[in-house]
Amino acid sequence: MKHDAEQLAAAYLTTMRRRGRRRYEAHLLACEPCWREVCLARRGRQLAEASREAAPPGLRDEIRAAVTAAATVPADRPHARAPIALAVAMTLAMVAGATMAALPWHHGPPVPATAPTVLAAAVASYRDNQLPGTAVPGELAPDLTRLSLHPVAAATGQLDGMPVTTFTYVNAAGARLAIYRSTRPFPEAAEAHALGGEDSAWTMRSSGITVICARGTHTMLLLGSDAALVKQAGAVLHAT
């Protein structure tokens, strides 16, 4: 029988009706080219279907923020990027705050008990990518654009009863950094190492996260998984 194996296999795997399928399946048993066509196409479909993956968790929030921002921009300027970007950043901060309020505090493995609880709370907050409150801060995020770090969320709230303002940043590679500022000094962890000098900054590492507490009044913490980036941010902010 003369036939186009490719065309028949394509139809069989997509649009062929029941009666045609039965006849074709009987034909498959005796026709090696058709059998091979169907096997390969089935395997390819399985591979393609297996590559399905959900969108990153933050994507919907980003879309919501962008569309909400666009809705507040005059309609004759649909691509006024700068005001949209600003509004997106503000909306994301509020969304992140709301997420924080809706979710339980701890998700991952416990933070070592030796760290004072406020530091453990800061590490857990960073690790779970959650803000310690929902209020919009009255101060601007420190400028870390020299390190290609851009603010993505900010909030004022409490860490283990301690009032803090948090700013989180990311760079193009996805590395994340968080700053916690308080009106009170952060307690020093037993395992902390001084970075030198009187009233010096100190550093510790917990659950793979590097923490630096700023020198002087010790009212600022910097946290991140990338130790070098945390140190660089400390230097830019004159914290070390």
Binding site: E6, A9, L40, A41, R42, R43, G44, L47, A48
Partner: peptide, 8 residues
């Protein structure tokens, strides 16, 4: 169909 085959 051709893409699936090529992928496999």
């Amino acid at each position: 169909h051709r893409g699936r085959k090529a992928l496999a």
